[in-house]
Amino acid sequence: MFHKFLKLPIELQLVIWHFHWPPTRHYFTLYDARIREYGAISMEDERYVNRLVPKRKKATLDFIPFLTKIPFTGQIRVRLRRVVSVDPPEPEFSMIGSKAEVYVYFAQDVFYFDDFPYYYPLTDTWAKEEWFRFLRKPITQLQPPKLHKSHWIFKVRNLALRLEWIGESRGTEWDHTILRKMKSLKEVWLVHPRTPNIAIETPFLMINRTFNELPYSVDGGVKDAYLYLQGKMKEYGIDAPVVMTTIDT
């Protein structure tokens, strides 16, 4: 440890923090019908990292100006690290009751949303796969909320969206209500696992396999979803390229 770090000029401390803060991929899904799930993975070594804000009033990271704290509501299951003593390794997690916050760096972090179908037991119906259901409050909310313009989702610059494995996902009307307001977007990834029921973090770790143009192996449904979203970005006036990535295993 560099024990004299805090004695350096604050400007130099911030430069060091900036260059040593690893880009992070944050993923958002549902653990079950009432509990959200979140995880953060370092892009340097593909390991889970703990981005939770400590419960105490002030932490060292609170003084890093390029970091932002984003809040979650309701119960959330947070993946923290992988257990290496079991085969295959399973990630450990922490269950947070409510009011969890995590540190993010909007300029370089990637925010990855699962396309999660939802079952309403009272009406015995399934809702269409939705990318941003994680943001509903509560998850069981039938009518989607109106997110305030200051909501953190509208500050996201790098967005990744999971395509259902048969390639039919195009987002719900509410998904597109949010997308059209994400004017800070710089790049959008469509993550297409070509094997059903693959764990969400598996293609997330493999997102570096990208294509500037669609590969010949992509089926028609995926291609249609890709072209549809590409067209929507232009319609919404968002100058963010749509990048396709497919996962074969």
Rank of each mutant, 00 (worst) to 15 (best):
L214S: 08
M95E: 15
V156M: 02
A59F: 10
E201Y: 09
K7Q: 15
P117Q: 05
D124S: 11
P22L: 06
R82D: 12
S184Y: 07
Y120A: 06
K232F: 07
Y226H: 06
I238W: 00
P193W: 02
W174I: 02
P91S: 06
R157K: 14
G167D: 00
S184F: 06
A40T: 07
L122W: 15
V104Y: 00
S42V: 08
K186T: 10
F2H: 12
F113Q: 02
E11I: 12
E44M: 13
I139T: 05
I96A: 01
S94H: 14
F66H: 13
Y38G: 02
D87N: 13
I166Y: 12
A160F: 04
E44R: 14
L185H: 05
P91L: 01
T246Y: 08
F19H: 15
G221I: 10
F116A: 01
G97N: 10
I76H: 02
V242K: 00
F5L: 07
L163G: 00
H18S: 05
R36W: 05
P203T: 07
S85L: 12
R56V: 11
R157T: 14
R82H: 13
A160D: 03
F93L: 02
L229P: 00
Y119I: 12
L142V: 15
L12V: 13
A160Y: 03
E235R: 05
R136S: 01
M1V: 15
T172W: 00
P65Q: 10
F113I: 06
M233L: 10
I247D: 05
V86Q: 09
V84H: 12
T246F: 02
P91M: 03
E168V: 15
G237R: 07
N197T: 15
R36T: 02
L229E: 03
L142I: 15
R162N: 08
L12W: 09
F93Q: 03
W152A: 00
A225N: 07
D114Y: 04
F106M: 03
L163I: 13
P193N: 08
D248V: 09
R79V: 06
L6V: 14
